[in-house]
Amino acid sequence: MAVDSQTVEKLAELARIAISAETIDEVSNRLGDVLQLVDQLQAVHTEGVAPMAHPLDEVQVLRADQVTEADRREEFLQLAPQSEAGLYLVPKVID
């Protein structure tokens, strides 16, 4: 099953990954191969089977409401590609 390039473009947009025009056919084909593999699932009868998001039937343990984290801004900001005045900088966000 091939995936058309329009679908690939839509997925790339949702996933915010630039895919060059030259490679889009290659990506479409590979993606088609993978989807063909996973399409085997469609033949399985799963009526009444509860989906399983976690391998073990454990339940969440909650954390006490305490402030445990100190200010480490300077350490974290050092990792940022661009920052100023304690802020992370990005190209202007337009609403």
Partner: peptide, 16 residues
């Protein structure tokens, strides 16, 4: 996102 601030290190940037 802070859109109004002006940054020395880049024009047209927003601060997060």
């Amino acid at each position: 996102s802070l859109h109004e601030a002006v940054f020395e290190s880049g024009h047209g940037m927003s601060g997060i």
